[in-house]
Simulated scan of single mutants.
Amino acid sequence: MSTLTTDAIDYRQHAGTCKNCGATTSGNFCQACGQATHLHVPSAREFLHEFLSHYVALEGKLWRSLKLLLFKPGFLTREYIEGRRVRYVEPLRLYLSFSIIFFFLVKLSGVEIIENETDAPPDARPAVSAPAAAMAGREVARQPQDFTEFERDVVRELGTVSPRLGKGAEKFLGLPGEQKSAAAKSAFFSYAPYAIFLLMPIFALYLKLLYLGSGRRYGEHFLFALHSNAFAFFMLSLFVVANGWDFVRFLLLLWLVAYLPTAMRRVYGGGRLVTALRWITLVALHLLSLVAAVAVAVGLVLVN
């Protein structure tokens, strides 16, 4: 037997000494550092499984977590708070998994961030009579002038905030329709996932303020934020997939709207009316935060 084959066999055998920290071991894992004692060079299949389990959370307990997340609003958060955790996917991994899937599906769907109606082919335009065409021509002639003035106002206002921002806006607005759409789409997929993720601590802060005096720590609110937004990403992913199925989309939107107040009652308690008021306030604040995040993302695009 060759030396290489012998080394490979020895490498796969149980190690009496941990190769990571040097401690003496007797089981499947090192008692000092936790590294596995049965070591071997991973195959391509094992590399793929490790990638999926760490970044997409495709593992057995995902389905248990998903079932509770979808059909028992707030129950998964309660389980985690009460110490029953190992049987479920970690909240952060759950959030990241569904957010990755959502943005992948949106990108795959080819959705347009900016619609360019002026780029429609002439054949797609309805036929009109000569007088109507003349009137429409005069109206169209006025519109570019008005829109150009609007663009100038936008550039002027942004320039008062930052000259660099104003120049970036002027450059962006001067792009042809297709290039403008491509730039907007690139900016969306470059900045939106990070902006939305950075809103999670703010979402938790809103919950903390809405439930002052409840005795809940900030970490519990952050946990609820991760679970509720993971659910939102999953439902929005289904919404993208259900393109053309209007009734299915309607049902998904209904459950998306009803989910958050139901989860809030299960986790925090309280009456229906008080929970409804808190829910309305939370949604309004979160929407304002999203608008602010989009504005910041647009600013980053314009100055780059």
Rank of each mutant, 00 (worst) to 15 (best):
residue 54 H to L: 12
residue 108 L to N: 03
residue 220 E to H: 08
residue 151 E to K: 15
residue 90 E to G: 02
residue 285 L to A: 03
residue 78 R to Y: 02
residue 254 L to C: 07
residue 150 F to L: 13
residue 303 V to Q: 06
residue 67 K to T: 08
residue 224 F to L: 10
residue 296 V to Y: 03
residue 241 V to I: 15
residue 267 V to N: 06
residue 186 S to A: 14
residue 167 K to L: 09
residue 211 Y to L: 12
residue 26 S to L: 03
residue 191 Y to Q: 13
residue 11 Y to Q: 13
residue 191 Y to V: 05
residue 202 I to V: 15
residue 27 G to D: 05
residue 33 C to W: 08
residue 173 L to Q: 03
residue 105 L to Q: 04
residue 50 E to W: 15
residue 125 R to I: 12
residue 188 F to D: 08
residue 169 A to V: 06
residue 281 T to C: 04
residue 134 A to D: 12
residue 272 R to T: 15
residue 82 E to L: 10
residue 156 R to M: 10
residue 226 L to H: 07
residue 69 L to G: 10
residue 166 G to L: 08
residue 19 K to C: 08
residue 199 L to S: 06
residue 91 P to H: 10
residue 184 A to F: 04
residue 273 L to Y: 05
residue 24 T to L: 08
residue 203 F to R: 01
residue 166 G to P: 00
residue 166 G to V: 09
residue 30 C to W: 04
residue 175 L to F: 03
residue 62 L to S: 09
residue 149 E to D: 13
residue 181 S to K: 12
residue 265 R to H: 08
residue 276 A to S: 09
residue 3 T to F: 04
residue 122 P to R: 12
residue 231 F to C: 00
residue 185 K to A: 15
residue 297 A to Y: 01
residue 210 L to E: 09
residue 268 Y to T: 02
residue 43 S to M: 04
residue 107 K to W: 09
residue 100 I to V: 08
residue 10 D to E: 14
residue 177 G to Q: 06
residue 279 W to F: 08
residue 72 K to I: 04
residue 54 H to P: 00
residue 77 T to P: 00
residue 154 V to Q: 13
residue 89 V to W: 05
residue 241 V to T: 14
residue 85 R to D: 06
residue 16 G to N: 14
residue 185 K to Q: 14
residue 67 K to Q: 15
residue 243 N to V: 15
residue 294 V to D: 12
residue 13 Q to Y: 09
residue 38 H to V: 15
residue 297 A to C: 05
residue 265 R to D: 01
residue 64 R to P: 03
residue 244 G to R: 14
residue 191 Y to M: 06
residue 240 V to S: 03
